[in-house]
Amino acid sequence: MKHLVTLLFTVLFTCQIASAQDVISGTVMNAANDVALENVHVVNLNQVKGNISDENGSFEIAATVNDTLYFTYIGFKSIKVRVTNDWLKYGNVKVKMTEVGIALEEVTVSDVKLTGYLEIDAKNIPIYENKRYSISGLNSGYEAGDSSPSAFNKVIGSIFNPADALNNLFSRKERQMRKLRKMKDDESIRELLGSKYNRETLTAMLQMSRGEIEEVLSRCSYSEDFVRTATDLQILDAISGCWEEYKLLQRNKN
């Protein structure tokens, strides 16, 4: 009887591992003409794993039932697809993405008059400074400069109350923040975020709104200029660094 119970436990445990390690496959296509799409980024939002489709549009990724896959490709509308039992049972599924028009943002060109003399022109060209102030034990750094005139005040505020400023925000988002390390360790996800500036992928992966992401960065004293111009990967690293510092402060406080 004892051996039978052990055998049943082993079978159940093996089945659980096999289920957790299911690999599903599919093909990404253009919805307009069924042409295969190469280099589409596929991210499992639940397991925080990523992959890229090959020249035939084919991809494979670890997933289980009810996981959500996120597909993103330049020039196409990003989509989320839920993994179903039928997908696991019947194998390859065709995922079709819709092409979208790309509207270029208006660019304002400032009039800078150049004389041809380097010493004079160098003084006329505007320079935007974003300085970093590093305070040991509080954060990896704080930004200040013309584009963030309140940054210094944020530093002073963090000195007097470093933990409480982020406590309410991070305590609500602890589950999302725990994904950060997995996101940073996956090369496919890092490559994807390094090419993105619109925060769309970050909001999907962290299940946070763009406003919440910007609030985190503001609380961590990153300048508006950094928030506006950084890649999604740089934003990820900034949030991750702030989260690690927050956890350290909480441990010291306790």
Rank of each mutant, 00 (worst) to 15 (best):
M1R: 14
V5C: 10
L7V: 09
F9M: 12
T10R: 05
V11R: 07
L12W: 08
Q16S: 13
D22K: 08
G26V: 00
T27D: 05
N30H: 12
A31M: 07
A32I: 08
N33V: 01
A36M: 02
L37N: 00
L37F: 05
E38L: 04
V40S: 00
H41F: 14
N44F: 03
N44Y: 03
L45H: 01
L45A: 05
Q47D: 12
G50T: 03
D54W: 02
N56G: 15
E60N: 11
E60P: 01
A63P: 02
N66C: 06
D67Y: 00
F71C: 01
F76V: 01
F76I: 01
K77W: 05
K80T: 13
T84P: 02
D86E: 12
L88E: 09
L88C: 05
K89F: 05
G91Y: 05
G91A: 10
G91Q: 08
K94V: 10
M97G: 00
V100L: 14
S110G: 12
K113I: 13
G116W: 02
G116R: 04
G116Q: 04
Y117D: 14
I120P: 03
D121V: 04
N124K: 15
I125H: 06
I125Q: 06
E129L: 12
N130Y: 08
L138R: 07
N139F: 05
N139S: 14
E143S: 08
G145H: 08
D146A: 13
S147L: 12
S150I: 12
S150N: 13
V155W: 02
I156P: 02
G157S: 14
I159D: 05
F160P: 04
N161I: 08
N168W: 06
R175P: 06
Q176M: 05
K179C: 00
E187G: 07
S188R: 07
R190K: 14
L193I: 07
G194D: 09
E200P: 03
T201M: 06
T203Y: 03
A204N: 09
M205A: 04
L206R: 01
M208I: 04
S209C: 10
S209A: 09
S209T: 15
E214Y: 06
E215K: 12
V216E: 00
V216R: 03
S223R: 00
E224S: 13
F226W: 00
A230W: 02
T231S: 15
D232W: 00
L233G: 00
I239P: 01
S240E: 14
S240A: 15
G241N: 15
C242G: 04
W243E: 02
E245V: 04
L248K: 15
L248F: 12
L248A: 15
R251K: 15
